[in-house]
Write a protein that binds this DNA or RNA. Structure first.
Lengths: 337, 337
DNA sequence: CTGAAAGCGCTTACAG
DNA sequence: CTGAAAGCGCTTACAG
């Protein structure tokens, strides 16, 4: 493969000049020399060697996208928004799919450092509460080696992050149900450290704001799968004084609720109102279509990218940006009977 | 950051020895020397510089995954299966999301060469028929610069590829409908160059195999969106002698058919049978659940990865592997009335 | 088992 | 506007 040495020889200039003509440096160059270099480069089918460039410059123009899964709309929508902007800014995206394994996350972190990635957008993998500690360690590791970091979805110290006010999302959803006359409202939680706690608090505070005493039996922990939504909904619906509305902290569990109601012959929304968290094509097309709390995923992606680019350009002030979710009303809610 | 020079100095050995102790080379080393080096490395918090290593060795241990979108189960399932295996083999994945833009695809190809990526798994972006030419050019470009390539979903010359027998998938689906008594079967095509042609041929051949003369009015072109499935289904269902079954070449268009039937008050499956192509959680949970032709996505990913790894290890024989789809029967098909 | 030396292909102050 | 020189942090035959 042709190198700048080959070009230099043919043009009878130094490699320094070739380098400067080719890499868009702002160093002044004689227009004729430049043109000659460019022509020869084209003739030789020259392609710069990014590896060599990175070693010499200390920058790889690579950012890592560390996410728990890629088979979930939530992350791919954020990822797509980011990847697009990053590509336009001349960065490439190194995909790190942890598959919700804290071990894989840690391996990736090591790899990111080793490969001298410039920055990382970090969505922590958290299955068990103690994973949080490792997440924190991983971030510190990155920081120690000078890797720029932006996180989302969670709160860490000393780094920029973008998150959504999930407390508010849950609060508004429950207030909406109450406004329809519901007072017995089930809550399907997800065992997630962090964000899920906020949703739960939003739920409790909304009830309190209307003077409703919450019923512990109405709060059930699940694991975010459709099956767990199904199972827990069945449990709630079989109570003698069953809830007339159910709020699930994610998308799939809400679909599980719909399925459980269908199997038990309970009409949604006439006899049971349901609200989920996070939108998807499934929520839109299922019968009845689901009312959901929608997070601004594309905005999250774009903002995370902006924050990172900002840091990469030398602006190292930490910023924490919180976005608002929106209640998307469809056909799964109705007045309490 | 610590380098092998720092370690060499502290251990009083050459950098050569340090390098060999650290990078798992099979060069024999005195165990005590090795241990000392390893200890000092740990003490200094040494992390190898992959960039330098790549430049010296000529290998980046990076593979590019070039796909048309990441917001589609079809690709993310393949991608996840691959990424996993590649990570285990010590490669990282450089995500190239073309967003169905042939221009972006071409830019990525250039970037892949420039970054000295070892290999690429290539799913061509094809919106217009003429994109095919550029796909071919892009592959040739990669090959010229010694990048290993494996493609899927399509047929190219001179490279390994894994694909699914979509002809057979369509053929079997139509035969199944015929076995239920259907003779007027609509076909919603997708304007895709390549694979879609096979599905159409499978459709036509299946009809012919039973001596059914196909009706041109029953074949409609769409663009793979739910909306186009909806629109085209409405057109078919409003014909005086409307089809009693519809086959759509993808997932979303089949859902569009369901929606159209619902709006027109046509019962599925009693009055209309529907089959889609490619499975998804939506197909499974929509009412009625959709019978589909399912492609073995995980297998595709794993095999593509295997083929590439094989090439990367020096085995350059081209292989073309064709997998079988399966008809997944659910509740959207019934006897013709 | 160890080391000296050359090399991978660029960039970048510095001097002119 | 151009060039000489050092450097980025490793690897790898080769010789000993």
């Amino acid at each position: 493969m042709a190198t700048i040495y080959d070009i230099a020889k043919l043009c009878k200039v130094s490699t320094d000049t070739v380098s400067r003509a080719l890499n868009g440096s702002d160093h002044p160059i004689n227009p004729q020399t430049r043109e000659k270099i460019l022509n020869i480069a084209k003739e030789l089918n020259y392609r710069p060697n990014t590896i060599a460039r990175s070693l010499a410059s200390g920058k790889t123009r690579t950012i890592a996208l560390l996410i728990p899964t890629i088979t979930n709309d939530f992350y791919t929508q954020i990822a797509e928004a980011m990847e697009d902007g990053l590509t336009n800014a001349g960065y490439i995206t190194y995909l790190c799919n942890t598959r919700r394994s804290i071990v894989k996350e840690t391996e990736y972190i090591n790899d990111i450092i080793t490969r001298r990635v410039d920055g990382v957008i970090f969505s922590p993998t958290r299955v068990k509460p103690e994973d949080n500690l490792q997440n924190q360690k991983n971030i510190e590791d990155l920081l120690k080696y000078g890797v720029q970091v932006v996180a989302f979805g969670s709160r860490f110290s000393d780094i920029s992050q973008v998150s959504v006010d999930t407390y508010k999302g849950a609060y508004e959803a429950i207030r909406y149900l109450i406004s329809l006359g519901h007072r017995k409202i089930g809550f399907l939680d997800g065992l997630l450290a962090g964000t899920s706690k906020n949703r739960r608090k939003g739920y409790l505070d909304a009830l309190k704001s209307e003077g409703i005493v919450h019923d512990e039996r109405f709060i059930l922990d699940g694991d975010l799968t459709l099956e767990s939504g199904y199972k827990n909904a069945r449990r709630l619906l079989k109570l003698p004084d069953a809830p007339t509305a159910i709020f699930a902290v994610n998308n799939l569990m809400a679909v599980g609720v719909l399925k459980a109601a269908r199997d038990l012959g309970i009409d949604v929304p006439k006899r049971l109102s349901v609200i989920g968290f996070d939108d998807s094509i499934l929520s839109e097309l299922i019968e009845p279509s689901l009312t959901v709390v929608k997070q601004p995923l594309v905005d999250m992606g774009i903002i995370a990218k902006e924050l990172l680019l900002d840091q990469l350009n030398g602006n190292h002030a930490f910023k924490t940006i919180k976005l608002e979710p929106a209640l998307l009303k469809r056909n799964s809610c109705y007045y309490a009977y």
